[in-house]
């Protein structure tokens, strides 16, 4: 097991290095100039800015300086927010995205497993049709529409009740998190429902379920011990990457609900060509994603004895 984890960690490190390198060179080849602004600047001011950010050096030199810095955990100073270190930005805003993301994933996982099992149990009957219709809706309606609609819904509920039942936007308390987390987790929930449904259906017809049935095991026990535990494996596989995807993909939800998460920086930095923030957020999220995948592999070993054997 230790050997397995160690091997995966080394692979992960190489992946992160590759992400860092690819992002660095892609970023420097994107047309545009991070130092340009509405009001044109004189040559000397430009030279000063270039020196400040080390852009006056050749790109390869910049690359090695940069690699050395991230090896020491230093992502540098933001181009757009001139007095803030990228490390500070990540430290202050990632926890917000993480809390929102974890809540969203919990909602998505619980909902997905529950609805997926239900549809499989009621296959081709009314509950199945209703849930699967909602699933298609959840996958195909873009999150900015759902976000805007649910916000409008909150306003309507508040005005009907004559008091602030749920906050319309902002961040701070649990009540601020509920709706954004639900919106954020909705697509994943729909996706997991489908996954759970098909894997449940596969297992319902498998030999060991039939054997259990013929042995006279009660249906509830078959469902819990044999079906659910086996069917949930593929869900766990995608859960790791989804946690990473959800915590990074919160851009729309963060804008609509005015939430100070890292997802905003991830997107806005690219629009502003904020080199250090692009690199910082990408490498950080890359590492996070890789870590999640490794974590899932390890958890898999605990849940499925077959993986451990190999």
């Amino acid at each position: 097991m230790m050997w397995f984890i160690g091997k995966r960690l080394v692979q992960g490190l190489i992946t992160v290095w590759f992400i860092a390198t690819a992002t660095f060179f892609a970023m420097h080849n994107v047309p545009g100039d991070p130092l340009l602004n509405d009001r044109a600047t004189t040559a000397i001011i430009r030279a000063n800015l270039e020196a400040k950010y080390g852009l006056d050096k050749p790109v390869t030199t910049q690359y090695f300086i940069y690699l050395n810095n991230i090896a020491h955990g230093d992502f540098g100073i933001s181009f757009a927010q001139e007095n803030r270190e990228v490390n500070d930005i990540i430290r202050e805003h990632f926890p917000v995205s993480a809390i929102l993301g974890i809540l969203a994933v919990v909602i998505a996982a619980v909902g997905g497993i529950l609805w997926g099992s239900l549809t499989a149990l009621y296959r081709n009957r009314l509950p199945d049709y209703i849930i699967m219709f909602l699933v298609i809706l959840g996958i195909s309606v873009p999150s900015f529409v759902i976000a805007a609609l649910s916000q409008l819904g909150i306003v309507t509920i508040n005005s009907l009740l004559g008091r602030t039942f749920l906050p319309v936007a902002g961040w701070g308390t649990i009540s601020h998190m509920l709706v954004p987390a639900l919106v954020l987790g909705l697509t994943t929930m729909a996706y997991l429902t489908r996954l759970m449904r098909s894997s449940m259906l596969e297992i319902v017809n498998s030999d060991f379920v039939r054997t259990a049935k013929s042995k006279g095991v009660p249906p509830a026990r078959i469902f819990a011990r044999h079906q659910l535990r086996n069917a949930v494996l593929p869900v766990i596989t995608v859960l790791g990457p989804s946690i990473a995807a959800i915590t990074t993909g919160g851009f729309v939800v963060e804008i609509v609900f005015a939430i100070p998460g890292l997802g905003r920086f991830f997107v806005e930095a690219v629009q502003q060509l904020d080199y250090t923030v692009i690199m910082g957020t990408t490498v950080f999220y890359g590492a996070f994603l890789v870590f999640m995948v490794i974590l899932v592999d390890v958890i898999y070993g605990f849940i499925d004895p077959r993986v451990r054997m190999n």
């Binding site: 916000q151 909150i154 306003v155 602030t164 319309v168 936007a169 902002g170 804008i255 609900f257 005015a258």
Partner: peptide
Amino acid sequence: VAYITSDTNAKLNLFKDGQ
């Protein structure tokens, strides 16, 4: 300054809600 957002729809919703 309770909200920092460029989304005019969100701002309209906040205004409607009296925030």
